[in-house]
């Protein structure tokens, strides 16, 4: 009856052998292809460095001006703009400007990358049920797998640094982008699609003139979610050498510096709120003509 109380698991030696075989296999793969893959990602590296340099080396008043201008054009709301300004000034006043700018540049690159990869995948998913069936479970895994776990293969392949951090963040943050692009396109009114067909649109005309514009508010919600998730990942990514607000937080955890942790944590919250309000306000402005006013 022993099997009833203790789960009859795989033989210890066999299990150890299996794990070892997989590890060694992956290590061998890393050794032979690591350099190649690293080279593959070198354009990303330069993009990251350029963004980083721009954010940290531009004088702070210019950066504030740029961010406030973006906030204004996206939201057209004085409240949002004022909120942005105050948050940024406070962050600077508490001497977290440089770290914040590094984080913002990282988030910016992550978001651009997520959009560039996520939207095409979302479009493919919306077009074919088969692609959706394949991609959906992969996204589930990406979202539920503890983020520390996929840091391991990324670090094994690419070492410690910005690019592996970027990849880890993108893996974590891209699923809502893909899902909401797919959902947005699938939710486009069937009657409007039929009208597009009746006027003889080609597939690309239909996509760019009808489906994507009508899915845009949903896609914007996806971008918003992606940014939020990327920010949440910043602290974890700092474990593999991503600079920014995550590193002081990490240091604070290791040394029990309560205030340091709190300040930097609040700075992350602050920029999260800025990103969120600005992108949501923009999404809402896109929706302006969509609600039905007349019955």
């Amino acid at each position: 009856m022993e099997w009833f109380y203790k789960f009859p698991h795989m033989d210890d030696d066999a299990l150890r052998g299996l794990k070892k075989a997989i590890d060694e296999g992956f290590r061998a793969f890393t050794r032979s292809y690591g350099d190649l893959i690293e080279n593959l990602f070198s354009p990303l590296q330069s993009f990251l460095i350029a963004a980083d340099r721009f954010m940290t080396q531009t004088p702070w008043p210019v950066i504030i001006l740029i961010i406030v201008a973006i906030a204004w054009f996206a939201s057209r709301s004085a409240k949002v703009v004022l909120g942005c300004l105050v948050t940024l000034l406070l962050i600077g006043y508490f001497d977290m400007w440089d770290d914040t700018m590094r984080t913002v540049s990282m988030i910016f690159v992550c978001t651009v990358l997520s959009i560039a990869i996520g939207i095409p995948i979302g479009i493919l998913m919306a077009r074919s049920d088969r692609v959706q069936k394949i991609v959906s479970p992969i996204l589930d895994v990406m979202q539920t797998m503890p983020s520390f776990v996929y840091l391991i293969p990324v670090v094994m392949l690419l070492g410690i640094g910005k690019v592996p951090g970027l990849i880890a963040v993108v893996i974590y943050a891209i699923p809502p982008m893909i899902r909401l692009t797919d959902l947005g396109i699938r939710l486009v009114d069937k009657d409007v699609l039929e009208a597009a067909d009746a006027f003889g649109t080609s597939a690309s005309q239909k996509l760019f003139k009808v489906q994507l514009p009508l899915a845009l508010p949903t896609i914007m919600a996806g971008i918003n979610q992606t940014i939020m998730m990327a920010l949440a990942m910043v602290v974890v990514a700092s474990m593999i050498g991503v600079q920014g607000l995550g590193q002081p937080v990490l240091k604070a955890i290791a040394n029990q510096y309560f205030t340091l942790g709190m300040f930097n944590g609040l700075a992350i919250v602050g920029i999260a709120i800025i990103f969120d309000r600005v992108s949501q306000a923009y999404g809402q402005r896109l929706q302006k003509h969509r609600e039905i006013v007349h019955g």
Binding site: V192, E194, A195, A198, G200, P213, H289, R290
Partner: peptide, 18 residues
């Protein structure tokens, strides 16, 4: 053919809201 020979009007209008 759809572009040049026919045009259609729909019950639910099917205008592009954007």
């Amino acid at each position: 053919f759809r572009r040049h020979q026919t045009a259609m009007v729909f019950q639910k209008f099917a205008l592009l809201p954007h």
